[in-house]
Design a protein around this nucleic acid. Sequence first.
DNA 1: GATTATTGTCATAAAGTGAGACAATAATAA
DNA 2: TTATTATTGTCTCACTTTATGACAATAATC
Lengths: 232, 232
Amino acid sequence: MKGLENKNFIPNLSFDCVIFGFNGKLLKILVLEYHNTGFFALPGGFIEVDQSIDEAAKKGVKDRTGLDNVFLEQFHVFGEVDRADPEHMRQILIANNDLTEENEWMLDRFNTVGYYALINYEEVTPTPDQFSDSIGWYAIDELPDLMMDHNQIVEKALIVLRNNLSEKLIGMNLLPPKFTMKQLQSVFEAILDQKLRRTTFQRKMLSLDILERHEKLFQGKAHKAPYLYSFK
Amino acid sequence: MKGLENKNFIPNLSFDCVIFGFNGKLLKILVLEYHNTGFFALPGGFIEVDQSIDEAAKKGVKDRTGLDNVFLEQFHVFGEVDRADPEHMRQILIANNDLTEENEWMLDRFNTVGYYALINYEEVTPTPDQFSDSIGWYAIDELPDLMMDHNQIVEKALIVLRNNLSEKLIGMNLLPPKFTMKQLQSVFEAILDQKLRRTTFQRKMLSLDILERHEKLFQGKAHKAPYLYSFK
DNA sequence: GATTATTGTCATAAAGTGAGACAATAATAA
DNA sequence: TTATTATTGTCTCACTTTATGACAATAATC
């Protein structure tokens, strides 16, 4: 199998990544479509015997997005006995001519560690993995039916993201290094799925003392030019 | 091996539990001491092939405490390659006369799912597992050196507990079904490791509308008797 | 029956948030 | 060149929440 040969993986354990991006309007995630099966799935993979789970997930995100140094955090382990139907994996292996004896371990029960990543949408070149022929951005409320329990994994990731948004101040990971206050507000609104009050939002963000204001203004629109900010 | 024979476990994956209790003054956790090795460790175990990770952890807590229906939640997966020194496990197996060929899988790399539990200290009868000769409560700031990365696991559990305390309102799980406002405040103070203001705390708790006040008062002290409350 | 320690509640001050007003200004239209 | 438009940065005032202290109520003890 391309890419998996000569590697030793830990059995019964995988990782799956909910990779969030923001296109200026909508919160989106990266979804793979597998060859000839019509299955949609989250980007994921297995853990090599001499690789930490974090390293494996980090490499997974790098391979699918080209990005290094991304905000990436595990959020939950999904450990139900029958969370993954082995029949799905069988069909994927068959579609790839990979249903060999040495790959049978992939049909076993799998526990998976869920990770979520926040990335700068503009910097990404999505790249399919060896099983899939397409990878693309899907708005969070227009996801296709995903394999196994991947829709639930996304749900849980969203809950955790919403909880951590204000507390950990991670929203800026979805934006370019320099951004306007309005862009930042849009990120919060997209994630929380609610409108926020402009003046209150601005006052709060500034009071947190985490933003650096740059004198260089963002111009090009027919109105007062807003400041650009970066994360301190 | 007593208790493990005839069972099929998932390799390379375990769980460990940080079981919190509150004795009225201090926040404590349950720690095991292993036979003849002097090793201290968190209660934990392996996951059977037809058992979810949650079920395994739940059973682990039941076996060590006798308690069912306990607040129990996973908080982190520890997946570093060398987080567990196989030499420790080897010594434990030797001390138990269990270092057989069929137990060699226990010497392999292990990823572990960390759980934390909050229990009513008074209801517990701590029970050692088959490898350990003692189990006992240790104050959170007087823990012995634990095996492997178990001290770090406790650290992380504490951080998560502190974060979730106010948000998820889980503090009452450390108390008997009926408790006074002062007891509840003591729990918060022990977990957060800081003094809280009595009137503010009381007003906040009552405003949350999660407590039921009972007319039956707690008596026995030389002052006005406080109300008893229970969780709604 | 007075004393003591602690409780339940209120009063006031301080801090934080909601909601709108208004001047400033970059591009566009006149 | 000047007026218009849309949006930004900031301020104000009302309202809500939190901090802090005061005080009466009361169960056991002296």
